[in-house]
């Protein structure tokens, strides 16, 4: 099929960017979206032009490296990662707009690549359980009810892609932050640091320039891993608890 793509081109963080249009003649429906961009890049390179810079690594939907806004929707029209979207979702003659994540917490680095370092700093602000290597007790001494373990697992499947931020009109990273608070807060191992964790992570979230959450729900709709909105309620409960306990 023939496809036209309008791609955001921006030389570096300081440069001004613009949309540039390219035509592809031989797109095959079994191609993944990123393979379509690979083909475009081969075409550009042979024509002596600079290929489009975009991030990807596993191409299996698990590392969270990829992610662009496709026709206005983070990761495109299906609930999956950009790398797992296939061209059979589109049809001959389609025009596709491709842009980077847009959020003040994610400055553009080049073309479709953004800087998501803020996510690491939010985790560093408390998204862990403090246990030095070697000091762990025998694993089965601490039974965890299956239901809690399963819920913790679901929250822990967040891949840190940032689609939730790109989707949010406020540019909030609450779904990402709350997924971690929920994962660790549901486990007995996570209890001792439950209050300091939520305070530290939320403070860092705000310091990174992410907007606040007003419960719009666009984040969860865009999330390729289906992280549910109720993780944010849980975060808010923990936050209120911590504040009430005078831990701030």
């Amino acid at each position: 099929m023939r496809i036209t793509v309008n791609v955001w081109r921006q030389k570096n963080a300081d440069a001004k960017g613009s949309m540039v249009s390219y035509a592809l003649d031989d797109v095959v429906e079994d191609m993944s979206f990123l393979e379509m961009l690979d083909v475009l890049n081969e075409q550009l390179t042979l024509a002596g032009e600079e290929p489009v810079a975009f991030d990807s690594d596993c191409r299996e939907g698990i590392c969270g490296t990829c992610g662009v806004v496709i026709n206005g929707i983070p990761h495109g029209p299906e609930v999956t990662t950009t790398c797992q979207l296939h061209m059979r979702t589109f049809k001959d003659g389609d025009v596709i707009d491709i842009e980077p994540w847009r959020a003040s917490g994610f400055p553009v680095v080049k073309d479709l690549i953004v800087d998501r370092g803020a996510f690491d700093r939010i985790i560093a602000a408390g998204g862990y359980i403090s246990v030095n290597t070697g000091s762990a007790p025998e694993a089965n001494n601490l039974p965890v009810p299956k239901e809690d373990a399963d819920h913790a697992f679901e929250a822990a499947t967040c891949i840190g892609c940032g689609a939730c931020v790109a989707a949010c009109p406020n540019g909030s990273a609450m779904l990402f932050t709350a997924a971690k608070v929920t994962h660790l807060g549901l486990l007995p191992q996570g209890q001792p640091e439950r209050e300091s964790r939520v305070l530290g992570m939320v403070e860092q979230h705000d310091a990174e320039g992410f907007g606040s959450c007003t419960n719009i729900g666009e984040c969860t709709a865009a999330c390729p891993k289906g992280i549910p909105l109720d993780v944010i309620s849980r975060l808010n409960r923990d936050l209120l608890g911590a504040l009430a306990a005078g831990k701030a």
């Binding site: 070697g134 762990a136 373990a149 486990l187």
Partner: peptide
């Protein structure tokens, strides 16, 4: 042991054990 202490959510049985 180390991973469980860190909060790695391994699959569990109904009794809560790994």
């Amino acid at each position: 042991d180390q991973c469980v202490a860190q909060g790695v959510p391994f699959a569990r049985e109904y009794g809560g054990l790994l």
